[in-house]
């Protein structure tokens, strides 16, 4: 599997490493995907890198690659963001993978081996949901709102109504809320705020977890929040050019 830029892998690693230390990557002809739970089983993260994300991709037999994020991060730090990455996994020797970074400009090539782990991964069946509300907005704006409000209080409430979407945090000494209304005068789709809902709803989530979830803003200019009463929120970042997505499910806080 050859990616045109290592930056994609670096961003994916950044988006999951606070939640997950080791995870199985499933490789098949459609691409590479992973699903993992954080140790507290509060957040589920799913990553899909489709064949379209790669400059070239071939997977003759489905394989599971057990990756330890820490050494993987060390290896990836050796790659320039605009260097090509080739990942090679051999079906005859499933003990390790090879990573080759190529810098075409400097005619430099570097090669690494990463030992694979035997991970007893837990998989969760996520049912298809009929969401009560969906909000799409610029991922940078969502990130700023979450980062700012997480400083105010550890509970982040998201309310959707005719007024728009309201994000609220309450701390011991202060309380803050931010309201976003659907944008009408913005041309660029990536800058638009779109809100749809069937019934008004209000749900509360742990702000520190939500902060971790906003790391994926580096992977996509937009984010979609899908909510339903008394259900985990789904926060989805779609990568450009059908390259894939990263999705997080975060369980709510309740009385």
């Amino acid at each position: 599997a050859r990616l045109p830029r290592s930056a994609v892998l670096k961003k994916i690693l950044d988006s999951v490493k606070d939640l997950v230390k080791e995870t199985n990557w499933d490789c098949n002809e459609e691409g590479m995907s992973m699903q993992a739970l954080d140790t507290g089983r509060i957040v589920l993260v799913e990553v899909m890198l489709r064949e379209a994300a790669f400059e070239s991709y071939a997977c003759e037999v489905p394989m599971t690659l057990g990756i330890d994020m820490e050494p993987f991060g060390k290896v990836l730090r050796c790659a320039g963001g605009d260097e090509k990455v080739t990942i090679k996994a051999s079906r005859n020797d499933q003990d390790h993978i090879e990573l080759v970074f190529e810098n075409e400009e400097k005619e430099r090539m570097s090669a690494f081996e990463l030992k694979l782990m035997d991970i007893d991964g837990e998989h969760m069946a996520v049912p298809d949901a009929e969401w009560g509300a969906e909000i799409s907005m610029p991922s940078s704006e969502f990130k700023k709102i979450v980062m700012d409000l997480a400083e105010i209080g550890s509970d982040l409430t998201i309310a959707v109504s005719k007024l728009g979407v309201t994000f609220t945090a309450q701390g011991n000494n202060c309380k803050g809320s931010m309201v976003l209304q659907p944008s009408t005068a913005v041309d660029k789709k990536s800058e638009q705020v779109a809100i749809s809902f069937t019934e008004p709803l209000e749900m509360t989530f742990a702000a520190p977890y939500m902060k971790m979830i906003t790391k994926a803003a580096a992977l996509s200019s937009t984010v979609t929040l899908s909510l339903d009463e008394a259900c985990p929120i789904c926060v989805r970042y779609e990568m450009e050019d059908n390259a894939g997505h990263i999705k997080y499910y975060l369980a709510p806080k309740e009385d």
């Binding site: 089983r41 509060i42 069946a125 369980a251 806080k253």
Partner: peptide, 14 residues
Amino acid sequence: GLAQRGLSTFFRLI
């Protein structure tokens, strides 16, 4: 205060 629920109460582990 509010209690944090776990995902296992919503999704099935397989």
